[in-house]
Design a protein around this nucleic acid. Structure first.
Length: 604
RNA sequence: GCACCCAUAGCUCAACGGAUUAGAGCAUCUGACUACGGAUCAGAAGGUUAGAGGUUCGAAUCCUCUUGGGUGCGCCA
């Protein structure tokens, strides 16, 4: 990978020029911002000159004089205030092209220190609608897992399903009173959601109007609702105490939901190594709280067991402290691990889960791909882990909310949210229509397969091409668009590469002579060469959109090359070179899209 | 009230402290249809990067303040 090669050469040149680089100062080479000056650039001389109080141009020149890059660059220059610019040579580019054709890993280096990384993502709740918000966690988490695995980490994916908790009081009662068994066998998730929603609505004591203002309902309805709540609570208590009937119902709910989820994940080409839901940790919760209390990490407060500030951090940085609303005094913001009625909460489960991942899986890192609304919870969880003596690296890979057309949050309670399944289905339907219009002589089964790839890919790409932290408004047309910067555009580039080889008569020598001459050819190799760098750029800040953007640029570069440089009509070395470029593009696109979790098709 | 996140073209989004023009897509307008697959390409137009200060040779990016929005803040997950 040019960037790291040039960086190490530059570091050597600094040493050879006897320029002392202060500790903590990074001499790096990056992709050129403006290709008129070169392919790569370094700003090290300018930044360092500031620290050393010397002339940046002179400094840059003395380093340039020591640079040993004849095998990579045809030109290095010092420009402007002290930029070092590198232009990759045609021979080096030809070598790179050869590497892309022979190396299964496409020149992407493996990490030096492979870690065991647990990626926690998706995490749907039983009987609660899997709304569009789950798209973000599912796709971002899956992509990060794929990229980490590709660069050599040991990755363990775990779907921490919400299969335990207070919602089961309502579900159990609903199962016994309003369940439609036919509907359940047709679409279990949908029916369980319906049951949950109807009971939940009947439990309401207030009504929300369009502005979000709550008004109390009439007393007779409130009385009924409160009685119903008691009933549901009783059902929950009986479940937690091991009542045989309720336990059976619960098991059915979990089984039916997971069976259906498996199909969804299969459609989306997403797989988990583990699916340990909250219920898996039930037995561990009571001993955990006892232990936390014994060690003084948790304390009793108002009848509950809570974790509070240990006073080791300044109040502003302490996740267990906040300002009081009116008095402005610093007051405790505890993490509750046991309710005053003895019940446990998701914070308790999360600690138990963390323990399990460290002790059983030997996790070096755990990544939680969860919405940014949970950021305080994770700060508290991570701080607790630290106090417990864990050294595992913990990251909350947060993402923004998906908003309604009105710019406000989708609310699960108030009902009509767009379901994840609907989005996927609609995406596949739209893709199917587009496939029909093309008439490429595909069979119905092939059209279905292509529609799944294009439709599913479009939804994934719409999500992954965005910065994870920004909120965005949900929009059917945008999510499912087939034009512009979308999955079909990228897949079409791939289809064009394959089409070339279908038309190719006779054998093609993979190791034939290549020579880069045309600007469009050069631009394409340069872009291909950057795959390695981009892949490694994804992980430090958990940014799949960098890879998505790269692949879009690669597709654009390929389409331009395709228009400018005839492949099959070319002759001799030119033809060999262009075929090699097509094959290399094909490989990088397929692999890169694969890292985003998007499949490719040879025809569409 | 306090904390965290956000504000870039009409709309939806990019941009690694760098180079007289801050990039894409959509929408709008011009071209390329004997096309190695047009789900394509070439081009035009569109911006005081919310506002004001500061650090720097250099700021959309870092710091401070202001404004506007989002989220969270004791027994839901």
């Amino acid at each position: 990978m040019y960037r790291s090669l040039l960086t190490s050469r530059l570091q050597s040149a600094f040493a050879a020029a006897q320029i002392e680089v202060p500790a903590g100062f990074d001499v790096t080479v990056v992709l050129a911002a403006d290709t008129r000056y070169g392919d790569y650039q370094s700003n090290a001389a300018m930044t360092l000159a500031k620290q050393l109080k010397t002339n940046p141009r002179t400094l840059a020149q003395s380093v340039a004089d020591q640079l040993q890059v004849a095998d990579l660059c045809e030109k290095i220059s010092v420009d402007g205030p002290g930029f070092l610019n590198f232009t990759i040579s045609k021979d080096a580019l030809a070598n790179k092209l050869g590497e892309l054709l022979t190396d299964d890993h496409l020149g992407v280096p493996r990490v030096e220190l492979a870690k065991t990384i647990v990626v926690d993502f998706s995490a749907p709740n039983i009987a609660k609608p899997m709304h569009v918000g789950h798209i973000r966690s599912t796709f971002i988490g899956d992509c990060l897992a794929r990229v980490s695995r590709f660069v050599g980490h040991k990755v363990i994916t775990d779907n921490h399903i919400g299969d335990w908790g207070t919602q089961f009081g309502m579900i159990l009662h609903g199962w016994k009173t309003t369940l439609d068994h036919d509907a359940l066998s047709r679409d279990a998730i949908h029916e369980l959601v319906r049951v949950y929603k109807s009971i939940n609505a009947a439990c309401a004591t207030t009504r929300k109007d369009a502005d979000g203002n709550e008004t109390p309902l009439p007393p007779d309805i409130v009385a009924k609702a409160e009685a119903l709540r008691e009933t549901c609570k009783d059902e929950l208590v009986r479940l937690q105490q091991g009542d045989a009937e309720n336990h059976e119902i619960w098991k059915s709910c979990v089984r039916l939901t997971i069976e259906q989820l498996d199909k969804v994940y299969a459609t989306l080409d997403i797989a988990f190594d583990h699916c340990l839901g909250e219920s898996f940790y039930n037995e561990a919760l009571a001993p955990l709280v006892t232990d936390l209390l014994k060690r003084g990490i948790a304390t009793h407060s108002d009848g509950a067991a809570v974790i509070m500030s240990d006073g080791t951090k300044p109040a502003e940085d302490d996740p267990f402290m906040m300002r009081h609303k009116t008095t402005k005094d610093w007051v405790a913001a505890p993490l509750i691990v046991q309710k005053s009625d003895g019940g446990f909460l998701y914070g308790t489960t999360d600690i138990a889960t963390l323990n399990h991942r460290v002790s059983e899986w030997k996790a070096d890192e755990i990544w939680y791909v969860v919405g940014s609304t949970q950021s305080l919870h994770f700060r508290q969880l991570f701080d607790t882990a630290l106090r417990m003596g864990h050294t595992v690296g913990l990251t909350h890979v947060a993402f923004g909310s998906i908003l309604g057309e009105d710019g406000k949050m989708f609310k699960t309670r108030s009902g009509e949210t767009v379901g994840l399944l609907e989005v996927i289905d609609e995406g596949i339907n739209r893709a199917r229509k587009a496939v029909e219009e093309k008439e490429q002589g595909l069979s119905d089964a092939e059209k279905d397969e292509v529609a799944r790839i294009i439709g599913g890919g479009s939804v994934k790409y719409a999500e992954l091409s965005q910065h994870r932290l920004t909120d965005y408004k949900f929009n059917w047309d945008k999510m499912l668009s087939l034009q512009g910067n979308t999955a079909p555009y990228l897949i079409n580039a791939y289809v064009r590469t394959r089409s070339i080889f279908r038309k190719l008569d006779g054998d093609w020598n993979l190791a034939g002579d290549v020579a880069i001459t045309e600007p469009a050819e050069r631009a394409l190799v340069m872009k291909l060469a950057q795959f390695a760098e981009t892949t490694h750029d994804v992980l430090p800040d958990f940014r799949p959109n960098l890879l998505a953007q790269y692949l879009y640029e690669l597709a654009t570069t390929y389409h331009s090359f395709y228009e400018a440089c005839p492949v099959l009509r070319a002759e001799g070395t030119s033809r060999e070179t262009r075929l090699a470029l097509c094959e290399a593009t094909s490989r990088v696109l397929k692999t890169g899209l694969g890292l985003l979790g998007i499949k490719t098709t040879e025809r569409m």
